[in-house]
Nucleic acid binder design. Structure first.
Length: 546
RNA sequence: GUCCCGAUCGUCUAGUCUGGUCUAGGACACGGCCCUUUCAAGGCCGGAACACGGGUUCGAAUCCCGUUCGGGAUACCA
């Protein structure tokens, strides 16, 4: 058993007998390099961020490329912020993107294929259900002096931080020299609330990153960070190290914001005798203005629009009521006065619609609602920080590809080091091209599926044939599915009553006024007039594509 | 503040490791023209970048150092 090479670490000695033995058994025990296992480990505290999809996509592609397995693990160790519903949403969004996981929570994708499962028997994929494993490691560490209980109050910690700040130093928590270890253990055993900290030895930690190269972190980086919180749950740093080891994760792809966390993880791995996985830190993705792409952006956009329109709290409240998301004037006022407050996503959507602004898309769900195709999102995302470095026959770069291409060509050495800005215009162009390349039938089907989720009204207003007609007319000139209704082109008539059709004066001048004037002696002003002027029946208007 | 990372057209990037083939290529966007009864789409053409300063070298976008700028981390969040 202990011949399992890389896996014969600490946990074989009893951290988690069950998962340890089973992991080792199914791992290729004779091989020095175990089968590739990558993972995506979201924390279920909100929707799936578009940047997260790229991390997942790359992790997925790397596993596919190397015949390995892609795991999804739910990091729900923040009891206050984690929720079941956001976990479900994340699984759904990931599956919608076509990024399917070989191991992880069970799920059925949109076409009825089961995703997930636990083929290697590594145990639960929810960290909240792995507490026993963490506790066993903690007990050992406490026993061997690798960890110790700590009783500081938040106020004490704040004071220490302030002190360090005053000295213009980075705050690093280290165990007090004169502390009595036995006394501390006794206090903990007596039930006094405490955290457990890592007795982190001062040492230089060299992190080898496949993207950034060798990064040296001096001893000033070590601190006795918390392993287990007072509520008994593990911290991220601890859970991630234990899980990556016990679940046989070989390659960790994650955002560059984690680079500074890596020496902590490596220090823990060394102390515990764990293997260090291969790390690849992905460059960050920002908004076009260089700011962080965050959920707050939506709130910010609405806030600015309200301010720009000089809307009173009463007016906003009325709008919200109209939108079916009633909120009291007092609440609106509180929101207006406090920039840290945020409106709910339904409220923001309702206001955006009434204010005629487009909310910035941040989460997968936003892009989906806007009518971007999942395969296009994956294509565009893959190009952010990675590129295949291949040329087409005409000398242009290979830029348009599907997920299969990514999984066949993905490699860590083609990941860039520089952060990128998310360009929705280019995404839109890719989406338009993809739509233009579809058949009318396929597009109509896609649009119906989209309506099924986001626009039931549309489905009720149009029977199958009329919908087909509408889609055929809209397809060549539309960037997203949500634009079908607004840019229906020649059959735009069909969507509003004749009298409501308002024409762009320049277009009327250029194409319609002169011919109609010759007939009627004056310019037409409404759709109804035009129809009369031309003497045609609406039903006879056929969609055409130029 | 301290530590860490980064720097090629407006944006995403190729080229950098292995210096010359780079008067720096592609894509999106932009401008012009063509096509066109509208809007799109398509075709052709165009403007547009190696952050700055020092080295090393016959030769630097490419290697080294510094400066500047940008970003990240500095939690009982992940």
């Amino acid at each position: 058993m202990s011949a399992a090479g890389e896996h014969s670490g600490h946990y074989d000695r009893g951290v988690s007998k069950e998962s340890a033995t089973s992991t080792s058994r199914s791992a290729p025990a004779t091989s020095a390099s175990p089968r590739v296992v990558t993972r995506f480990a979201p924390s279920p505290t909100g929707h799936l961020h578009i940047g997260g999809v790229r991390t997942a996509l790359f992790s997925w592609a790397y596993a596919r490329r190397h015949g390995g397995s892609f795991m999804l693990r739910v990091e729900d160790t923040d009891q206050a912020r984690s929720s079941e519903s956001s976990m479900r949403g994340i699984l759904e969004d990931l599956a919608w993107c076509g990024v399917d996981w070989d191991e992880g929570p069970g799920f059925v994708d949109p076409i009825g294929r089961p995703i997930g499962g636990d083929p290697r028997n590594v145990g639960s994929f929810f960290q909240s259900q792995r507490l026993e494993i963490y506790d066993r490691v903690i007990a050992e560490m406490l026993e061997s002096g690798l960890a110790y209980p700590s009783f500081d109050t938040p106020e004490q910690l704040a004071a220490l931080r302030k002190e360090a700040d005053g000295k213009k130093e980075a705050f690093r928590y280290k165990r007090g020299a004169g502390e009595d270890p036995k006394g501390a253990m006794d206090r903990m055993r007596s039930g006094e609330p405490c955290v457990v900290r890592f007795a982190n030895p001062d040492r230089v930690v060299n992190v080898t990153d496949e993207v950034l190269g060798e990064v040296r972190f001096g001893p000033e980086h070590t601190d006795d960070f918390v392993l287990r919180k007072a509520d008994g749950f593990p911290t991220y740093h601890f859970a991630v190290v234990v899980d990556d080891q016990t679940m046989g994760v070989t390659h960790v792809l994650r955002g560059q914001e984690h680079l500074n966390n890596t020496p902590r993880h490596v220090a823990l791995q060394i102390a515990l005798g764990y293997r260090t996985p291969v790390y690849a830190h992905l460059p960050l993705i920002f908004n076009m203005d260089g700011s962080k792409m965050s959920k707050r952006d939506k709130d910010k956009a609405v806030r600015e629009a309200c301010k720009g329109a000089a809307l009173s709290a009463e007016a906003v409240s009325a709008m919200l009521e109209e939108a079916g998301t009633a909120t009291t004037v007092a609440d609106v006022r509180r929101w207006q006065d406090d920039k840290t407050r945020q409106l709910g996503s339904d409220q923001l959507r309702g206001l955006a619609q009434r204010l005629q602004i487009v909310l910035p898309e941040i989460d997968v769900e936003d892009f989906r609602r806007a009518g971007y195709l999942p395969e296009v999102i994956c294509n565009y995302l893959a190009l952010l920080g990675w590129n295949p470095g291949q040329k087409n026959a005409d000398g242009t770069d290979v830029e348009k590809f599907d997920r299969a291409f990514v999984s066949a060509n993905f490699s860590l050495d083609r990941i860039g080091k520089t952060s990128s800005k998310f360009d929705r215009v280019k995404l839109g162009s890719f989406n338009q091209t993809a739509i233009a390349a579809m058949s009318d039938a396929e597009f109509a089907e896609r649009f119906r599926d989209w309506c099924d989720v986001f626009d039931q009204m549309m489905l009720q207003r149009f029977d199958h044939d009329r919908m087909t007609l509408l889609c055929a007319a809209a397809r060549p000139r539309v960037k997203t599915l949500s634009e079908v209704a607004s840019k229906a082109g020649p059959v735009g008539f069909a969507l509003v009553s004749d009298d409501e059709v308002v024409y762009d004066p320049a277009a009327v001048e250029k194409a319609l006024r002169k011919p109609v004037e010759m007939e009627a002696g004056r310019p037409p002003t409404t759709g109804a007039e035009l129809v009369r002027a031309f003497g045609v029946e609406l039903a006879s208007v056929e969609p055409f594509s130029a």
